[in-house]
Amino acid sequence: MKNSVLEELLPEVEQEVAVKEQVSKEHKIVLFNDEVNTFDHVIDMLVATCDHTPIQAEQCSLIVHYKGKCDVKTGDYDDLKPRCSALLEGGLTAEIQ
């Protein structure tokens, strides 16, 4: 009896989740490596603009250095746009994807 009730509700739940996924497209700021900025500057910028902890910012800076890029912040486009602009104004190479 329990399984039949669950089976009846499952398609409805799956449909609701699919609709929510389509509505909330999440964007991300991608930070790229460069040969100009110091680790300290990158860390300071991530703490100031992306609300990173110093350790999180340090880890992101190392990923950028060794991998060439790193997703540093995810969220709504309207929240990310001023953050990305601040990173760019600080001399970093970043974009919203």
Rank of each mutant, 00 (worst) to 15 (best):
S4Q: 14
E35T: 15
K2T: 12
E12M: 10
C50E: 04
P54V: 04
E7Y: 12
F32L: 07
G75A: 04
S24C: 10
L80R: 02
V13C: 12
E12Y: 08
H65W: 03
N33A: 08
V5H: 13
H65D: 07
F39A: 15
V17T: 10
K28A: 12
H41I: 07
L62Q: 11
A86P: 10
K28T: 07
T53P: 10
E89C: 10
K2I: 13
D44A: 14
Q15N: 15
V17N: 10
L46G: 04
Q56I: 05
D34V: 05
Y77P: 05
L62P: 06
E21C: 13
A57E: 02
V72K: 00
G75K: 01
A18E: 14
S85V: 04
Q56V: 07
V23W: 05
G68I: 00
K28L: 08
E8G: 09
I63V: 13
I63R: 04
E7R: 15
L31D: 04
T74C: 07
Q15A: 15
S4E: 15
L9M: 11
R83P: 03
S61L: 00
V13L: 15
D44I: 08
K28V: 10
A18F: 04
L80P: 01
D79M: 11
E26I: 13
V72N: 03
H27I: 06
N33Q: 07
F32C: 05
V64N: 03
Y66V: 10
L87Y: 01
K28S: 11
T53K: 08
L31Y: 01
L62T: 05
V5F: 10
E16T: 12
I29W: 01
A57L: 01
G90V: 03
H52G: 11
E14Q: 13
R83V: 08
E16Q: 14
K25I: 11
Q56W: 02
M1R: 09
Q59E: 07
N37Y: 00
H27N: 12
S61F: 00
I29V: 06
S61C: 05
V72Q: 00
N3R: 15
A57Y: 00
K25H: 13
E89I: 06
T49N: 13
G75M: 01
E14H: 09
E58C: 03
M45I: 03
R83W: 02
S24N: 15
S24L: 11
M1A: 12
V5D: 15
E35I: 13
V17F: 07
S85A: 11
I55F: 09
E26K: 14
K25D: 12
M45S: 12
N33H: 07
L9A: 13
P54E: 05
C70E: 01
H27F: 12
V5S: 14
L80I: 00
C70P: 02
E35C: 14
E58K: 06
S61K: 01
K69D: 08
V72F: 02
H65Y: 05
L10K: 15
D51A: 12
F32T: 03
Q22I: 09
F32H: 08
I29N: 02
L9F: 08
M45G: 05
D76E: 13
D40T: 15
E12H: 11
R83K: 13
D78Q: 14
Y77G: 05
K28W: 02
F32M: 06
K67W: 02
I63Q: 06
N3P: 14
H65G: 09
E8D: 10
D76V: 09
K81G: 02
K2W: 11
L80N: 00
Y66P: 10
V72A: 01
E12Q: 14
T74G: 06
